[in-house]
């Protein structure tokens, strides 16, 4: 059988392809997480704005009162605070946090593989 050695040329092409593919994946991942983070920050800001508009935090002034007054009114105050909280916005923020967490969980194996590939790409880049 005729001998042939194309391994160097093949590996050069493979490394070039993998560099491109890996960087594309990383940019897509960062973009995705970035967008989700922006959405989360918006919900947190909006929630904070609504709480400020409604003066919900002022109800926490109860804590400055005597212990007996706190003991008597804390349940009512808590009910009012919960009622006044922007529940829709908070719920959406929790959903986005859940999505970010799920993305990190589901891509854990893939990210480890990408990290390994990048290490090999750097190693091969130094060799060639």
């Amino acid at each position: 059988m005729k001998t042939l050695d194309v391994s160097d040329r093949v590996m050069d092409r493979v490394v070039g392809f993998e560099k491109f593919r890996t960087h594309c994946w990383l940019w897509m991942f960062r973009l995705g997480i970035g967008l989700l983070s922006v959405v989360l920050l918006y919900f947190l800001w909006r929630g904070g704005q609504l709480i400020a508009e409604r003066g919900t935090l002022e109800l926490l002034g109860l804590l400055r009162e005597d212990r007996e007054i706190i003991r008597e009114y804390w349940r009512d105050t808590a009910d009012i605070i919960i009622a006044e909280l922007p529940q829709g916005t908070i719920f959406r923020a929790i959903v986005v946090i859940g999505i970010i967490f799920a993305v990190f969980l589901l891509t854990r194996r893939r990210r480890n593989i990408i990290r390994k590939k990048l290490q090999f790409i750097i190693k091969l880049g130094k060799k060639r």
């Binding site: 391994s7 590996m11 480890n112 593989i113 390994k116 590939k117 090999f120 790409i121 091969l124």
Partner: peptide, 8 residues
């Protein structure tokens, strides 16, 4: 699993 060198 990410070991590019194994392909060689």
């Amino acid at each position: 699993d990410g070991d590019i060198l194994a392909f060689e």
